[in-house]
Amino acid sequence: MIGSKPAELSPSGQAITWSDSDKSVAVGAYALRLGDDALVLAHRMAEWIASAPELEEDVALANIGLDLLGQARMLLTYAGEVDGTGRSEDDLAYFRDEREFVNCQLVELPNGDFAVTMARMLVFAAYQYELYDRLCSSSDETLAAVAAKAVKEVAYHRDHATRWVLRLGDGTAESQQRMQAALDVVWPYVSELFEGNELVHGLVGGGIAVDPAELRDPTTDYLTTVIEQATLTVPDTSVWHTGGRRGIHTEALGYLLAEMQHLARTHPGAPW
């Protein structure tokens, strides 16, 4: 958890100096972590197309998915360039196996009903907003540029989810009960968002990455305000799921990848 001391810090608390190649590999891994989150959630959004409760919502979820897909493409492209492996965005999206994906488990959870989708969007967009808002100041020019574009899009995602959570939470008895149940489903996956690891802490020292622990308070404050305003209750969770950053995933990711990767693996190199 976030309380442990990152291994990259020397006893004096100063970040150790990495060789340029070590640093490039680390930046690639960090970009992959951000990109996998966006890619997997983009796929979940796409699953709603033609199934949303109303036409306008279909369009909204498709657009939000498209924003996330665009972010994922930029981040995966950069990851494959900077880490020196020369892997393309497609190589990374379609030809890695489940254990090589480093997305958080929150984004891979099945869509559930519409309330679960909105609860997840609220949490993830609130987190991503705080993250990108800070990553705009990264000393890595590419990450800063991706973040500066993305934060404006995520502001719309967060706002969209907020409106729905307020409407459903402070709605009918049925909608309120289902919105609360949805928060209960996603909440055990919230804490993982704020976990760092050695790699991230090393990059935080170099001004490249954002310390995930730093995002906990502002994200939680935003969520708490919305949840209370929606006359709902912040779930009382004692078990926190984690492991996504190490490639440990829920059962749901395998099915998602099977669908997402099927075409590219059946017809390698197929363009359209």
Partner: peptide, 13 residues
């Protein structure tokens, strides 16, 4: 405003 997301990413309805 009918919907904040429109026919393309840059438009609202």
């Amino acid at each position: 405003e009918l919907s904040r997301f429109g026919s393309t990413a840059c438009k609202a309805l």
